[in-house]
Design a protein around this nucleic acid. Sequence first.
DNA 1: ATTAGCACTCTCATATTCAGAGTGCTAACT
DNA 2: AGTTAGCACTCTGAATATGAGAGTGCTAAT
Lengths: 342, 342
Amino acid sequence: MQLSERKEKILAAVIEHYIATGEPVGSKTLLEFLNIPVSSATIRNEMAELSRLGLLEQPHTSAGRIPAQSGYRYYVDRLMNRYELPLNEKRLIEARLSTAGGEPQQILEQAGQVLAEITNCAVVSTTPCDDNAVIRRVELVPLGTRTVMMVMLSSSGILKSRVCRTDSELNMELIETFYNIVSQHFIGKSASEVSMALIQTLALSLGSKSLAISPLLVTLSDLAQLTEQTQLLLEGQSNLLNYSDYPNAYELLEFLRRSDPLTNLFSNHKSQGDASVLIGKENLFRELQESSVIFSNYSVSGKESGTLGIIGPTRIDYARLIPSLKYLTEIVGNIMSDTLED
Amino acid sequence: MQLSERKEKILAAVIEHYIATGEPVGSKTLLEFLNIPVSSATIRNEMAELSRLGLLEQPHTSAGRIPAQSGYRYYVDRLMNRYELPLNEKRLIEARLSTAGGEPQQILEQAGQVLAEITNCAVVSTTPCDDNAVIRRVELVPLGTRTVMMVMLSSSGILKSRVCRTDSELNMELIETFYNIVSQHFIGKSASEVSMALIQTLALSLGSKSLAISPLLVTLSDLAQLTEQTQLLLEGQSNLLNYSDYPNAYELLEFLRRSDPLTNLFSNHKSQGDASVLIGKENLFRELQESSVIFSNYSVSGKESGTLGIIGPTRIDYARLIPSLKYLTEIVGNIMSDTLED
DNA sequence: ATTAGCACTCTCATATTCAGAGTGCTAACT
DNA sequence: AGTTAGCACTCTGAATATGAGAGTGCTAAT
C-alpha cells in the first residue's frame, strides 16, 4: 500500500496529534496543524479514504479519527521521524549507569529505571543469556559449623549465591576436597554440563566424605542453573497507571509480573539490529492487545545477549521512545562489555 | 472508653461486615448477622450512640454505618479475635521459604511474595539492620586485566558486590597486598569504621602501589556502606489495584517505591514483641492516610533486626492479617538465625 | 479536484425524577 | 428505663430526558 504524499501527511498528523493529546482528531483541528493550503472538507475526504483503507478509525460517527492499528504500523515503518535524545541527556544517562555497580542485574536495574523515567512506560529487561557462558569461579564462605554460603560467578558476569546446610561438620579438609572437585570438574564448564548424573558419580567416588560434600554439589548444580537462567527485570510499572487507556491496569501489571510470557516473547522475536515494535494485537498475549511493545537487544562483546523493552499503550510516542531505547541498549551493552574484558 | 457488651458486639459486627463487603451496614442487615434478641430500632439507637462516640460514621444521612478510624482502633485493641493460620498453610509457607536461597534478601523476597499472596495487600520488608554487624569477608574476582569484581559478606549475612576498575594492571602481588590490608584493617570492623580518612592514610602508606590499590579501597568503602544500609523490598503492589478504596493508586504506588519514608517509619516505630497497627491518619504520611499499615519486627539470633509490613486500605481484615504477619516474621527470623549460627 | 454549506448523528454534560434504603424521632408498650 | 412499632424525612443512585457541540458525509457549485 502506497499513499499519496498528502495522505501520508494527514495520517502522520492524526497519529502525532492523537499521541500527544489522547483525543480523537477532527478535520478542523488538523487544518491548524497541517500547513497544507486546502479546506477542511478536502481533509475530510482524505480521512474518509484513510478510514476505508483501515488506517484510521472512528470511536463513533461523530467523533474525530483515531489511528487504527495498521495506521500506527504504516507510521512506524515509513513516516516517523526519529527524534534523537539531546546530547546532555545522553551524558546524564551515562553518568547514572556508570554508578550502577557493574553486575548485569545492577546495570539493567538502573537502565530500566532511567528508561522508565524518560518514557513514562513500564520497562522490562532480560539478563544476558550467553550460551557459551561457563562457570568461572566458585567460592565457599563458612557461616556456621554446618552452613556455608556458596557464591558462583559465571563468565558472563552473573553472580549468584545460595546458603547450603550440610549434615556433618565442615572442616578444612572437606572444603579443600570440594575446591579440588570444583576446579577439576566444574570450572570452565557450562551449566548444562553440570548434570545430576555427574554429581552422583562424583558423590559416589568420595567414599566417606560423600555425606558431607553431596549437599554442596547439589547446591552447586542449583547455582549453575540459576546463573544460566535469564532473569526478567521490571521497572516503572506504576507509570502505566497514568494512562486512561488501561481501565483495568491490574490485569496488565499481573501479567508483567509473571515473567515467563515476556521472556518467551523476547527469545522468539530477536530484533536484529534495529528495535522491534509490536503494536496492539500484533502481540499474541491477550493482556497486551491494548499495548505496544518496543524492544531491542543489547550486545555484550559483540554478541546479542539480552533484551531491553518498553511497554505502554498503543498510543505511545514511537518517534521519541525508539531512539531512547536504542541508546540505552547501546550503553548497556558497552558497559557490560567493558566490564568483562580489556 | 468502655462500651457495654452489646455495643461492642454491634461495633464488631459492623466492622467485620464492612471489611467483608465494603458496603455501609444498616440496622436491618446487622439484625441478621447478630443473634441478639432485639429489634432493628434498638440497634439503631445503639449505632447512633456509637456514632456520637466517634466510633462509627455515616457516608451520608441515609446510608448505613461504616467504621470510623477510632472504631477500627477500638476493634483492633479490644474486640478482635485473631484468626490463626491453619497448620497446613503454615507448612506450605515454610516449604516455600526454605527454598529461597538463604541470603536475607532472597528470604525476604520470598516471604514478601507469600505474604502478599495470602493477604492481597502490598508487603514491604527491610533487610536486617545489625548495629554490630562487621565485615566478614572480602573477595576479589578478576574479570579483566584491570577490572575486578569485589564481593563483600557481612556478619549479618548480607552479600554485596561491585565491579571496580583500576588504573593500572592488577598483578598477583597487588592483589596479595590488598588482601593483607583487608585482613589487617577491615575484617571484623563495622562499616562506620571504614572512614574515608582511614582509606586515605592507608593509600598514602602504600607508596608506589597506591595508584593501583586506591580504587579498590574506595570500592571497599562503598560496599561497606551498602551492606550497612537497610534496604527496602516491596512486593504485591498490584494487589492494591483491586481495592476500590484507592481512586488514584498511582500516587500510593509511587510513594511505596520511594523507599526512604517507609524505612523511616519502620525505624521510628519499633514494634516491641507484638505487631503494630497504624490506622488511616495515624500514619503521618499524606499518601498513607487512606491506608493501614501493620508491621512487626523479626528477630535474628534473638535481636530485633528488620521489619515486615503489610499495607492495604483501612478496611483490611486485621483479625486475619495480623496473625499471618506474625507467623511470617517468626519464620523469617528463624531461617535467618539458623543460617548464621549453629 | 476542491470547497462551501448543510443536514444528520452521536456523545457528553446537565437536569429531573423516583424508588429504595436507612435513619431518627415519637409514642406506645413491657 | 429500656425496647419497639411506625412513620416522616433525607439522601443516593439509577434511569430518563434534554440540548449544545463537535464532527461527519453528501451535494452542488466553483
